[in-house]
Design a binder for these strands. Structure first.
Length: 424
RNA sequence: GGAGGGGUGGCAGAGUGGUCGAAUGCGUCGGUCUUGAAAACCGAAGUGCCGCAAGGUACCGUGGGUUCGAAUCCCACCCCCUCUACCA
């Protein structure tokens, strides 16, 4: 949520920045300011009346104690009460409307964020490794999975539907090994605290991280929308800190979690949908940082490197791109995507999205800290996938496949797999 | 799921219609004393909103209601604890 004070100060500048995202959310800003004005003037009047009422009520108390008649001023204060109620309703209506609108306005992209309309304008920041040479034609992950019996889509369709996968045998073990590897890397090398949160999340939290009100259709709702299946661990993990006023925080607060993620992916059928590249349920290890506002951009670089480390250790070629204004997510001010090379697929796959939300989420969820001067300020929040499993899995088996059909397990993963090769 | 108990400031814990934003204790911070520290004593200290400010206003789990006036009475809901049932 944007700071209403900034909006009051310089609405045109903020409109211009929101506008760089495309879309028409910036058009809401004028009405927000009208509501704000209405709310504030009503509030002032209401509070004056309340002060009157409090004063007179005290007089009534005093009269009654003395055994005197107070019926006259009681009638007077009753009238004030009615007026307070009327104005109160107006103020509430303006406030509710203002809040509704404000929740629909996305974050402002960072000033240095490259301006552009869509993903074609995203600059590549760096690359690591290179596209591997094969002395044979590399198979894609669907084929490898079928050949080695690693996973089965039909088996998943039988019990759920399309867009799900069942891992089997060594394939299931590889999935488990990757999760273990990721969590251990982040907890032991990168200083993260591990949590394992619930996957069913209440509605308030969905507002906190910015999934609601705009993206309800992307999620699986339960109990008529009162609860949702977590679309990403970002939601439960960041919301662990909602409505907190951190007294003496040891910034950066770094939390990691493995969770399954549930997404309806409504309307994206057919897009990059072969195999397990886009699923209704997938596993992910998430990295969440809560930081001092002045350190968040520095921390974004660290966070991104922590995610990249995963791919380096697993010997997977990737590139890191910066999202332009038209492509950056709703709540984010700046985002790096990490895309891993999948030789069988013949393209790059997004395995991680590392974002600085600045105080956008913190303001929504009232996450604050007491700063060096004793002032209460909103924290900055960041998160990044560290990493998403299915695409990591895809790149992994496609990159490490051998001509004989086996898959070589790179050394860092061997302790978790208990072998250096999945036989062909 | 059923029965009972409970949700008050950083924590503990009083308060059952009007000088209660809230006693008291612990903890925290500042000061006095001390070579220094401890102890003792004195003092400070919640959050949001409105206001240039002075100040005002709201907040005692959440939302409604009664009343001139609600932490206190009524209703609904949420959460926690104990017992019980069921169950991985």
């Amino acid at each position: 949520m944007l700071d209403i004070r900034l909006l009051r100060e310089d609405p045109e500048a903020i409109k211009a920045r929101v506008k760089t995202r495309g879309g028409d959310a910036w058009e809401l800003i004028d009405e927000i300011l009208v509501c704000d004005e209405k709310r504030r003037s009503g509030e002032t009047e209401k509070q004056q009346l309340q002060a009157d009422r409090n004063r007179i009520s005290k007089e009534i108390g005093a009269l009654k104690r003395d055994g005197k008649d107070s019926s006259e001023i009681e009638a007077q204060v009753r009238q004030i009460g009615e007026r307070i109620k009327e104005i109160g309703e107006e103020v509430d209506a303006a406030e509710t409307r203002q809040q509704d609108l404000l929740l629909q306005v996305p974050n402002m992209p960072h000033l240095e964020c490259p301006v552009g309309e869509d993903e074609t304008a995203n600059p590549t920041i760096r690359e690591w490794g290179k596209q591997s040479d094969f002395s044979f034609k590399p198979k894609d992950h669907v084929e490898i999975g079928a050949d080695l019996g690693l996973f089965d889509f039909e088996l998943a369709a039988k019990i759920s539907g399309s867009g799900f996968v069942t891992f089997t045998g060594a394939g299931a073990k590889l999935q488990r090994a990757l999760i273990q590897f990721l969590l251990n890397l982040h907890t032991t090398e990168h200083g993260y605290k591990e949590v394992s949160p619930p996957f069913i999340i209440n509605r308030d939290c969905m507002f906190g991280t910015g999934q609601l009100p705009k993206f309800e259709d992307d999620m699986y709702g339960l109990e008529e929308g009162a609860m949702f299946l977590a679309p990403t661990a970002e939601v439960p993990v960041t919301n662990l800190y909602r409505e907190e006023l951190l007294q003496d925080p040891a910034f950066p607060i770094k939390t990691t979690a493995y969770t399954p993620c549930f997404r309806r992916e409504a309307g994206s059928a057919g897009r990059e949908s072969r195999g397990m590249i886009r699923m209704h349920q997938f596993d992910k290890v998430e990295l969440v940082n809560i930081v001092h506002p002045e350190k968040s951009y520095e921390q974004l670089e660290t966070l991104t490197q922590e995610a990249e480390k995963v791919l380096q250790l697993l010997g997977l070629h990737y590139r890191t791109i910066e999202l332009c204004t038209g492509d950056v997510g709703f709540s984010s001010a700046k985002t790096y995507d990490i895309e891993v090379w999948a030789p069988g697929h013949g393209g790059y796959l997004e395995v991680s999205s590392c974002s600085n939300f600045e105080d956008y989420q913190a303001r929504r969820m009232k996450l604050r800290f007491k700063d060096e001067d004793g002032k209460n300020r909103f924290c900055h929040t960041l998160n990044g996938s560290g990493t998403a499993l299915p695409r990591l899995y895809v790149a992994f088996i496609e990159t490490h496949q051998q001509e004989d059909g086996s898959i070589l397990i790179p050394e860092p993963l061997q302790p978790y797999m208990g072998t250096d090769r999945i036989p062909g």
